[in-house]
């Protein structure tokens, strides 16, 4: 009983903190099931009408597919580039390793808005039109530092000898990467893919500024918001949130299982 009283403030603090983080999400999700025209209290009972409406909204469904395509393809490219960069950094210890790592990681601190403006200007010069392709490239740019960091952190010293052993036994660089290093790194490659797909999936600023006719889901949700607050927006938001959570959850599980195996 005494322990309970002593830990009560800590418990209260935990609940308050979690509430602060998750309450907006809970409200969003709950009012997506609103049986009424406005996503505001009082809650008038559960209904799936807004989900029906959402799936009947062609522009929204189309954007959902666009989002998936952009997320998967940009995550794939990001993971491959991040993997190659991490391998290169881990394998050799170049004199400027620290500097290179800094340059690779620095974009994490730059606001998406700044990156988007930079990309907009650059694409204009190079001749790349505002499009889903441009959005995908933008997402590669913003997610690469994180992917690199995740994968690089998993390159241990033991991998150096494994890499040497593969070369020693006659494997080329490509063979070593494909047959030895990539399979060993599979869990962190997968985690990095999931995270960068998730970040691309609900990214708005770059998607908004670099697209024109075909747009991703966050952009459509933004348009709907400007038209007015309806539970349909909640339903769309709930969907974005649910898919993100599932993807991140899978990534976390894969990492945890892998971590357990290593011990």
């Amino acid at each position: 009983m005494g322990a309970w009283i002593r830990s009560a403030p800590a418990m209260a603090y935990l609940i308050a903190a979690l509430g602060f983080i998750y309450l907006p999400v809970v409200v969003l999700v709950v009012f997506s099931f609103q049986d009424g025209l406005l996503p505001v209290p009082p809650f008038k009972g559960p209904s799936l009408q807004w989900y029906e409406k959402m799936f009947a909204n062609e522009r929204l469904v189309e954007s959902l597919i666009n989002s998936v395509v952009v997320a998967v393809s940009s995550a794939l490219v990001t993971t491959i580039l991040g993997f190659l960069a991490a391998y290169g950094m881990a394998r050799r210890t170049p004199r400027f390793a620290g500097g290179i790592r800094f340059i690779l990681m620095a974009p994490l601190t730059v606001s998406y808005l700044i990156i988007a403006i930079g990309l907009l200007i650059t694409f204009n010069i190079v001749g790349i039109q505002k499009s889903l392709f441009a959005v995908g490239l933008g997402h590669v740019v913003i997610n690469l530092p994180l992917c690199f960091a995740i994968i690089y952190s998993q390159f241990g010293d033991h991998l150096r000898n494994i890499d040497w052993a593969a070369h020693d036994l006659g494997a080329s660089d490509v063979q070593t990467l494909l047959h030895v290093i990539a399979p060993i790194m599979k869990p962190s490659l997968f985690a990095s893919f999931c995270l960068s797909a998730t970040l691309s999936w609900d990214e708005f600023i770059i998607a908004f500024l670099l697209s024109r006719f075909d747009v991703t889901m966050p952009v459509v949700i933004f348009e709907m918001l400007r038209a007015g607050l309806t539970p349909e927006v909640n339903a769309a938001g709930t969907m974005v949130f649910a898919i993100s959570m599932v993807t991140v959850g899978i990534a976390a599980m894969v990492m945890a299982v892998n971590h357990g195996e290593r011990k």
Partner: peptide, 19 residues
């Protein structure tokens, strides 16, 4: 490079391919 030498190394940590 190691691949083209008539040598093979057995490493201290064995460096077996775990997968």
């Amino acid at each position: 490079p190691p691949a083209l030498r008539p040598t093979v190394t057995v490493f201290q940590d064995y460096a077996l391919f775990p997968h």
